[in-house]
Design a protein around this nucleic acid. Structure first.
Lengths: 258, 258
DNA sequence: ATAGGCTACTGGTCTGATGAGTAGATCGTC
DNA sequence: GACGATCTACTCATCAGACCAGTAGCCTAT
């Protein structure tokens, strides 16, 4: 899709022609495979043919195939494992490429954890708000995730359910962008905080209580409250990381609820 | 940064060791160049050494270098032009990779234009809200963009200034994620709408007026109003595209202001 | 039954060659 | 001297073939 990325501009002036598109061989390969994955003709966990097979199917050299696979890998669409018979694995995780952008910016010290949390507060609270007017099925999917969280044993499990809960909320509104971004930033946060120390060993009951309240608000169709609680939840969870920096801003937004 | 993406999980259990990281040669090349670009040691429009030079500098083969360059290109960090002496050009546009994800989803019909607009409403209005409490310099940068828009002649120019205006707002809050996402989605929208027909030939005075109001709200420090106006602005601008689908939801959010 | 090695695949990297494109120098004409 | 066409020396794009390294399943020997 690099051609589309490049093909911007000049919507206004009167030129009828546009630059010749010189398609490169590897781009064609990328597009074909990408399309197949995004249209779900190739499903998750399925395998692509081996590089040697792709050579004959696409009629290009191995180097070309490999360049294409590298791009697809960097976009989170496939995973390539050295030596694995069976070929590249379809991952179909577009969020991965967003995660990688964010990671890079973070490691280049052009982005702080507080920035990420702030952004998550905006996006996740909006998602929660939309979820409040979502379909019955979507809401019950959220409830299901909540109940699963109630019965977790290990901390690891709890974390996974937490992610699932928020993911379901993001999906409820029906706008894939929310799920995409929430996913990506969750992934980033789990990596980033894991590399230092984890802040999530809060009392389990506390976390559960907040989630319960969010769920209640969504089920009651109270978008405003669902959004507010989401913000509060994030602020509270990442307090040790975000620190007092954003605190005053938050106090203004989040009512002193507890 | 793919290793980081992969290096998730197991934060809870008691294992001391973690999987051996098998670093691939091309990943090392990607990381080094990526770091240099994101740290701005390599600035925009600057050139990377030619592939043959990179071979000796990194001590790897050409194929490896090329795989790395492909990844960097797909992330919007560099541009490679066939035959250009002087080598790859540093673009440093992390938003490009986000744009490309969104484009792909869109073309796979898993994302509608309305979805994108909705997401933009959330993000841009939040950004406008934060801008209301931004530094004096940041606000005057916004004002500067507005005044430049007043004096545009061509439609093309006006469009550019419009983008700049919103970009400055996104930057004002100091959180790079807003600028990143706003940029990426603007880019996507300009591509997507350009491919059909452009909806932006509204009366110029109308657009200007709304922007003026947003600017006023920001300068007055009225976050709530700035956010609201941003939402309204988007809804109005993309009315012919979004259509009546989201209309009722918008009516609830946006006051009947005009 | 199972731990250990064997084997037939996989991807990772290298070498070296040829084709295609660009930008600037060179040259010939006016 | 100004100007356009050609030449040249680079660039990237792609290919072909080789070898190393890793994986998973089979297959022995215990």
């Amino acid at each position: 899709m690099d051609d589309k990325t490049r093909a911007k501009g000049d919507p206004g002036s009167g030129t009828v022609f546009h630059k010749t598109v010189k398609r490169r061989a590897y781009e064609d390969v990328v597009d074909q495979i990408e399309r197949a994955i995004l249209r779900r003709e190739l499903k998750k966990e399925e395998r692509l043919p081996s590089e040697r097979d792709l050579i004959v199917q696409f009629g290009v050299s191995r180097a070309t195939i490999r360049e294409a696979l590298r791009v697809l890998q960097s976009r989170g669409l496939i995973e390539v494992r050295h030596g694995d018979p069976g070929g590249p694995i379809v991952r179909a995780d577009p969020g991965a490429s967003v995660t990688s952008v964010v990671s890079s910016l973070f490691h280049a010290e052009r982005l702080s954890l507080a920035d990420v949390i702030q952004f998550r507060m905006v996006v996740e609270s909006a998602a929660a708000g939309f979820a409040a007017s979502a379909s019955k099925e979507a809401v019950s999917a959220i409830r299901e995730a909540y109940h699963r969280m109630e019965t977790t044993a290990t901390l690891e499990e709890q974390f996974q359910c937490d992610v699932l809960f928020h993911r379901r909320i993001a999906e409820a509104g029906g706008n894939p962008l929310f799920a995409l971004v929430v996913d990506a930033l969750h992934q980033f946060n789990s990596i980033a905080t894991w590399q230092s120390r984890r802040p999530l060993d809060k009392a389990r009951s506390d976390t559960l209580a907040v989630h319960r309240l969010i769920l209640d608000a969504i089920e009651a169709g109270d978008a405003e409250r669902a959004a507010e609680l989401s913000r509060y939840h994030l602020a509270k969870s990442y307090e040790p990381i975000v620190g007092p920096i954003d605190r005053k801003r938050l106090e203004r937004i989040v009512p002193t609820w507890k």
